[in-house]
Design a protein around this nucleic acid. Structure first.
Lengths: 244, 244
DNA sequence: ATGATACATATCATCCTACAACTACCTTCG
DNA sequence: CGAAGGTAGTTGTAGGATGATATGTATCAT
């Protein structure tokens, strides 16, 4: 858990800061696709860092498909759809509105995945899910261990779909929401009172055991809407009020 | 478009190769979470590259949250759920089975997003979608320009949800599928015969204009299942056969 | 003997210089 | 006027040097 906290409060290394700066310049439109970045030397002078640091920053942007560097010419901004990775800005997570959007995305992903999981889960999957459920029941409050169990519960369900990409995406989104809640709690301690609703989880588990896709989807949807509400986010989903 | 091709056939730079090697070692389980990586010097000797190259590779892995470097100690492998970015291995895209999984994920994302878009789209959104639709209709064959228009069509619908994360995720998944199909076509030229079904797109657009979430979702789902079939992928989705 | 302090070591973080590889542009020569 | 070649600028790679930080060890006072 110390690891986790260390990862959250990551020290801002120099290359990271340079990359974040350039990334925002691109995101905000100051550097349009096709535009050429300043040379590495210019950047190193501008930021007051060595060329090495600039290179590490550029290497990161290039790995993400944000820019393309061509030897002898320079580095150029690529179109947004050419991104090779999805990366979510930590700063943006501090905005409640973005947390709402994340919950919305999560609801879309997890609800239907729950239906898939219900159709494909096997004994081993159910056992893993049950184990996470039991760990969660131990504590009622929104404690670290309880949150871990909660996330594990959702990851295990995602794994039961047998689709590794679904697992990756759901894990990622859940983790981003975790961070977002983490920030919200720091600025507003009231959230400490929030509890994890075990009953909602049990209903999801039961539906998965029964192998009922529709019930699993409905239970998952209700749970995520409930979870969002408990942290102060209202989810205005059309599907939630029965556009079946 | 030349840019696009250049990006696909990206020259493998040394840091990229080192990062890919380490990444696979972690993915395959040879380096478990918590394990310590060799020192930068050891790695530079092992791969026969300068320490600078190793550092750029490590910077990349660290930015993705795959490893965590701690000054004075070393670099350690993090747990998969701590990843800060989603990145899909290009090699894996060459596997047809993975393409099927991607289509499944795409269907989940886009179907429900289409419902959201139907509820929230405004005039400007509809115009953008229509523009993409018109571009697509010009050519019948699966040509580059037509594919671009197709992807743009889907991106514009994702944008109409008003949720930037949904837009990002859908764009990303679509682009991965594009690459996957690209590879499939190289090894199996038969796929050249595949056409884009304009009718399916029109049905989606009409439902969006009508502002009908359920119809939009159904049309989108049917379209993606159809698109998957046309490239030789069968989607066994429970929702597809009426688990409403 | 024990505990605390200081030192040595290992490792990452950053900086610096140099050269190689590549590209665009300009010059020069036929 | 055209083409070959040279030159400057930029990224790619190499290697070493120094600073910052954590770990382990040795020394010393109590």
């Amino acid at each position: 858990m110390k690891q986790r906290l260390a990862a959250i409060g990551t020290v801002e290394t120099l290359p990271h800061r340079v990359a974040a700066f350039l990334s925002r310049e691109i995101e905000s439109g100051e550097l349009n696709p096709g535009a050429r970045l300043p040379t590495e030397q210019e950047l190193s002078e501008k930021f007051g860092v060595s060329r090495n640091v600039v290179r590490e920053a550029i290497a990161q942007l290039r790995a993400d498909g944000v820019i393309e560097a061509r030897q002898g010419i320079g580095a150029f901004v690529l179109a947004p759809e050419q991104r090779a990775a999805i990366r979510i800005d930590r700063e943006a997570l501090k905005d409640t509105h973005n947390m709402e959007r994340l919950f919305e995305l999560r609801c879309i992903l997890e609800a239907e995945s729950a239906a898939l999981a219900a159709a494909r889960r096997n004994r081993e999957h159910l056992d893993s899910i049950k184990a996470a459920l039991d760990r969660m029941g131990g504590e009622e409050r929104w404690e670290e261990g309880s949150i871990d169990a909660d996330l594990l519960f959702h990851r295990e369900i995602a794994r039961a779909t047998g689709n590794n990409y679904i697992h990756t995406f759901i894990s990622f989104v859940c983790e981003q929401i975790r961070h977002s809640i983490h920030y919200a709690r720091m600025t507003n301690p009231l959230h400490d009172l929030v509890e994890i609703n075990v009953g909602e989880h049990v209903r999801i588990y039961d539906a998965l055991v029964a192998g009922d896709p529709a019930a699993s989807e409905a239970a998952m949807r209700a749970h995520i809407v409930g979870a969002a509400n408990r942290v102060g986010v209202k989810l205005p989903l059309p599907k939630a009020n029965g556009a079946k």
